[in-house]
């Protein structure tokens, strides 16, 4: 009797670890955004190649995070302004997403193929959290999952104001593309 209880306890302790084996992750996901207006003389775009993503297969939960200071611009001064004046990255160092795949049954993680996932959740950026919804393409290929998600973010939603003097260059909405390869977590 005593032993069986011990066994149950052991199982319970080990269970989260067993479940966590069903996670997929990436630490070098690419986040690219373009916030250039039509007809702007210079492009306002940047790329961050070290986004973190975790997908829990059983629940369909998805979490992603990216460091604001990791966005690289072509122009050093633009990068400084992005951090200092717009994103205030010393105060708000990260942008995060917490959500889930709504149509989890439509994705077969065990079979190679391309699946369309409906993803919804909360985006937190510049200290503001907003619900977002997008479609992601998942490509299961021999134990890896490639993903692509494109969505737009309205800067004003996140308390980022566009001064009139740059309104002819900086768009009110940023087009974001989020891509990467997920690997099984061991």
């Amino acid at each position: 009797m005593k032993h069986s209880i011990k066994l149950v306890i052991l199982l319970l302790v080990a269970l989260p670890t067993i479940l966590s084996a069903q996670k997929w992750f990436s630490r070098d996901a690419k986040v690219y955004f373009d916030a250039t207006t039509k007809g702007s003389p210079e492009r306002i775009e940047a790329t961050n190649k070290s986004g973190t993503v975790v997908l829990e297969q059983a629940s369909g939960r998805v979490e992603a995070s990216v460091l604001i200071k990791g966005f690289l611009f072509e122009k050093a001064l633009m990068q400084e302004h992005f951090n200092e004046n717009y994103m205030e990255s010393s105060k708000f160092p990260k942008a995060t997403f917490k959500g889930k795949i709504d149509n989890l049954s439509a994705v077969n993680f065990g079979q190679n193929g391309t699946y369309t996932a409906q993803v919804s959740g909360d985006m937190t950026m510049h200290g503001v959290t907003k619900p977002v919804k997008t479609t992601a393409t998942l490509k299961v290929n021999n134990g890896k999952i490639g993903f692509t998600a494109n969505f737009n973010l309205l800067l004003s939603d996140y308390g980022i104001s566009v001064p009139t003097m740059v309104a002819d260059k900086l768009a009110k909405e940023a087009k974001v593309s989020f891509t990467g390869d997920l690997q099984p977590m061991k």
């Binding site: 319970l12 630490r27 979490e63 200071k69």
Partner: peptide, 27 residues
């Protein structure tokens, strides 16, 4: 233990994976 398991399941998925921001102070 059951409680701890339940809490654990709702845990931060990113824990231990996220990078720390250790870039120099700007401007």
């Amino acid at each position: 233990l059951l409680l701890s398991f339940l809490l654990n399941a709702q845990d931060d998925l990113l824990e231990g994976l996220e990078q720390e921001d250790n870039s120099p102070v700007l401007a």
